[in-house]
Design a protein around this nucleic acid. Sequence first.
DNA 1: TAGAGCCTGGACAACGTTGTCAGGCTCGGG
DNA 2: CCCGAGCCTGACAACGTTGTCCAGGCTCTA
Lengths: 354, 354
Amino acid sequence: MDDRTGHRTVPQTNLRSATRYGTRPTMKDVAARAGVGLKTVSRVVNGEPGVTPETERRVQEAIEALGFRRNDSARVLRKGRTASIGLVLEDLADPFYGPLSRSVEEVARAHGALLINGSSAEDPEREQELVLALCARRVDGLVVIPAGDDHRYLEPELKAGVATVFVDRPAGHIDADVVLSDNFGGARDGVAHLVAHGHRRIGFIGDMPRIHTAAERLRGYRAAMEDAGIPVADSWMSLGVTDPERVRRAAEEMLTGRDPVTAIFAANNRVTVTVIRVLAEQARRVALVGFDDIELADLLQPGVTVVAQDAAAIGRTAAERLFRQLDGTLVTPERIELPTRLITRGSGELPPAD
Amino acid sequence: MDDRTGHRTVPQTNLRSATRYGTRPTMKDVAARAGVGLKTVSRVVNGEPGVTPETERRVQEAIEALGFRRNDSARVLRKGRTASIGLVLEDLADPFYGPLSRSVEEVARAHGALLINGSSAEDPEREQELVLALCARRVDGLVVIPAGDDHRYLEPELKAGVATVFVDRPAGHIDADVVLSDNFGGARDGVAHLVAHGHRRIGFIGDMPRIHTAAERLRGYRAAMEDAGIPVADSWMSLGVTDPERVRRAAEEMLTGRDPVTAIFAANNRVTVTVIRVLAEQARRVALVGFDDIELADLLQPGVTVVAQDAAAIGRTAAERLFRQLDGTLVTPERIELPTRLITRGSGELPPAD
DNA sequence: TAGAGCCTGGACAACGTTGTCAGGCTCGGG
DNA sequence: CCCGAGCCTGACAACGTTGTCCAGGCTCTA
């Protein structure tokens, strides 16, 4: 670690400024070329009044000629607001987050803001790292799908006025807006639907209960079973499995065990997909209800019955609350639960086949 | 599990609203509190050498106590680089862009950069608007899935050293890196696959030929037909339709017209999905090959044969080139075509049924 | 024609950070 | 005991923009 000498950056800078990084023109350059003052250029760039059409034309011409582009870093430094919001989610590649992300962006755009986003990959540390990086960039607001369960690190940010809305799961140990689906009610309804079609031995496959949504859906499952007066066997529940390999094993065990299930409730879309594959290989027809809609679910044989969340609505609601926080219209943090919708397509209406 | 109300405790609300727009602490504040100079704080924050452990401790304490977070806008203004790259794509909600976006982010993360992204919604004007907004924020680089076909507006940016890689379609009127799939070859292979299974009357449904990918795929279709010595009837081609309603009509016309097709080549994933629906309603078995893979394609009856693009590889390649441009390792713009892969699942292997 | 008021344009400071550079301290050797 | 070397530390300028404020020229009216 011989880092005493400070000569490490010099040659590269030289090379780069020679070839790649030609300094960009500044307002000063534009002003010089147009033969006007610095502030006049600023006025033209920002469409402020008080500039003669003729002067404006000259300035525009200089801007065009030099390829000037305002430096928003300097602008932000001066003005305080960045007109950008951050979105931290679990995985951009997950189909649930596409529409969500899109609807957040749509609202941001309507408010003239840009969207910066990142994936936490379900890693609390990475979530914090990302969120703090966004705060360092002084985003005006944050939409966070939490990976961790302690968000006290956000306290200084909230105090500093960073609008914050959590999505899909509540924040841990701080008081903030949350927008989520009615996971409990949705799961309960989905399982009740199976019960209504005659099932009693119903399996549940879901994520680790330390994840809020997973816990809520499990709670919904238990509630529906209890409402129906059905005692739940431990072998019907598989918690904390999410990778296809283990979901497959879990499903197969439920189907062939000592007390085989006649129906499965799959607590999220990834699980559902794997279960569909497993069921397709079975001779026996097993009923299935999944939480989260999946594309082409209606074209499968049978169509997949699901408890659908409205990802776009969730994103929109969250983003709108965020901007209302920024307006000052909103002060008190709230928890907003959006309803889910049971979509029957066949797989959830199959009768029990022992 | 007895937290069914989920009601919050609200002790901090007033505190938060009171200090809503409270100015954030700066290094100056930290310096004052720690009883050290401004620059010393800067050194601690940036992990620069030359600070006594004792001094560092005092500074860290002050940082903690004040909830200080470095203001990256000021930092960027001083240093020139933002450590962020922009990604402009067509629609975040499109399943093709999820993995692409994710892999770009992954590479960015490996280089310590954040990802800012936006959707152009296929609107050239909006694309330009977005790109320029990103440039104003001084992103170090841009990954662009072009909507428009003239990108001369980017010339000043390129000259100023903004690394730029186009994806999926080449840039218009400027010389820049492009990473895309072998659309021509993929489509040709897909259609040839149908020919090999005995089809001669093969339909083509795709986007407007002014879109590069659509044009290339159409060219592949024509090439395959010509190779097979099959003259193409105009009624077999439907160009420029992409919304489900019109795709449906187009497909139905091809299937019932005077010279009905026995197979369809669907030139993108949205078209494929709609065609699947239409074919499911037909008595006659019609063969289908789609461009772009779709989820669960293997579970349908029959499985959907597709020409698959590797979205993740495209994103990764593009992002890596971008960072190599920033390194100075790369200078000459190139066009990189990634191969596609024909995945046979059944629908493309059906024999002609007249 | 002079004075008042308006309109346009520019000088200057400030935003929060980092690079430069110089000053003060400690410590060891002469 | 003094001096130089080496290490810490802090004062200061600069990054590019915007807000404030003032100067000068114009028009309009009395």
